[in-house]
Design a protein around this nucleic acid. Structure first.
Lengths: 161, 161
DNA sequence: GGCAATCATTGCCATAGGCAATCAAAGCCT
DNA sequence: AGGCTTTGATTGCCTATGGCAATGATTGCC
């Protein structure tokens, strides 16, 4: 295999860039989505990309505890961004799914984030941009991230039978 | 100039990668720094990289309001990670500076983050790693981020005449 | 039919953030 | 000098987010 422990310089470059990206991610919400916080946005992203989930699974996806996820759903429900419905087969379970309004919030925040990123990328010479894209794609692929152009439009893909 | 609006594909690649990096940034604290939160870590990073700051300037650097910064300093002070001292010339001002213990926390969290990033980067073929590093460096440079290998060791640089 | 496991929720706590108000100290302006 | 404004920090009070422990409601297993 042509794999190996990366050089410190490589890690250093990613580490430095990551500080910028974290800052951008946060700004993309504070400004764009009037009332949506980072945590709420992450929940919506998970629901948008994975489809309806049980509370436990949502909690696990967000790496928080079920109470935390549950209370966040209370707030998202109050804003009409998600729906809650008990499963008919197992009445303990509560399925949470994103509403069109919720999807809208995700789209808008993503658009805002795109703007901020585009502003930064515009300062990179054109001839280098393709290389930058390839590098970030390689990184995302290595991390097993799903490109958001591949998210399911409606929840079908998220119920692995 | 050889600059221009970046292609959607470029933005998309960065956007996708940024989700991973945000997640890594958060995980690097929850696990590594025993009791230090993301917000506290960011405050320490600012103080480590910029040297002693007045409360207003720290707040501005963190993009939060002075009360928020002030209360965070209360908590960081309680943990011995920062110091607070009034300036002798203008007694309204409170200068906040990082302690050795605080610097230690930053170093450890950074180390942890490096590990996580190295794990991901190790899955990228060696021959592509140099290109990835160059791309991330170009991105960080475009965003005006200071590489952490260039942080001041002690506070001298942060008091611009 | 009863008991253990699973899922969601509620109670209580700490951190983090905002706005409005207050206090203290400088600065400015007659 | 005395008063008004501006600046800097803090305090009060609100919401949101996160955790753990306990509770309630079902389901599944014996």
């Amino acid at each position: 295999m042509s794999l190996s422990t990366p050089d410190d310089a490589v890690v250093d470059a990613v580490l430095t860039a990551s500080r910028t990206l974290v800052a951008v991610a946060e700004r993309s919400l504070g400004a764009a989505a009037e009332e949506t916080t980072l945590a709420q946005y992450r929940a919506l992203v998970v629901l948008a990309s994975r489809g309806p989930l049980r509370m436990v699974d949502l909690a696990r996806a967000l790496a928080v505890t079920p109470p935390t996820a549950g209370r966040m759903c209370d707030r998202l429900l109050r804003k009409g961004l998600i729906r809650r419905h008990r499963a008919s087969d197992d009445r303990r379970e509560v399925k949470v799914s994103i509403t069109p309004a919720g999807r809208n919030v995700v789209d808008q925040a993503t658009a805002r984030r795109r703007e901020l990123l585009a502003d930064i990328l515009a300062r990179i010479p054109v001839r280098r941009q393709a290389g930058v894209a390839a590098a970030f794609q390689a990184f995302a692929a290595a991390a097993g991230e799903v490109p958001d152009s591949q998210w399911p439009e409606q929840a079908s893909a998220a119920e692995p039978g």
